[in-house]
Amino acid sequence: MRHILPHPLLALALLAMWLLLQQSIAPGQILLGAGIALAASRAMAALQPERPKIRHIGKIIKLIGLVTVDIARSNIAVTRIIFEGRQRGQTDGFLTVPLLLTDRFALAILACIVTATPGSAWLEYDARNNTVLIHVLDLVDEATWIDTLKNRYEALLLEIFQ
């Protein structure tokens, strides 16, 4: 099984993308898409990427929900900051957060979450000390930010990947 279909999830995603692009689920399109997905996932296997180890599928849904709510909330917060402008003074700042995560996929996902949320941006990851530099637009309380990052996202990602 592993030999024929080295990356089942990737192949499935490619097939789904093909069908979405074609906007049809005709048998011919499914066949064509499956062929492309198979070929592409075998090409990917030739690169020998690391295989992510996903433990809890259910937690991923919880993570997506959490991130959506947080992005919605920070959308509102950033809108307010943009319109208040200069009057509120400087509240932004850089923040160094120590991390427990070491899995590369988990780190990539955490980086995407932090950057996609308006109001916080992932600047630099330091692999040696396992810390990350984050810029926060509304840095009222450093401890709260570190706490949110570590307890909301990192804890979940640790459960999913490690």
Partner: peptide, 10 residues
């Protein structure tokens, strides 16, 4: 750098 994410997220 925080501003364009409003447009790209919601």
């Amino acid at each position: 750098i925080h501003a364009p994410t409003l447009g790209t997220s919601f």
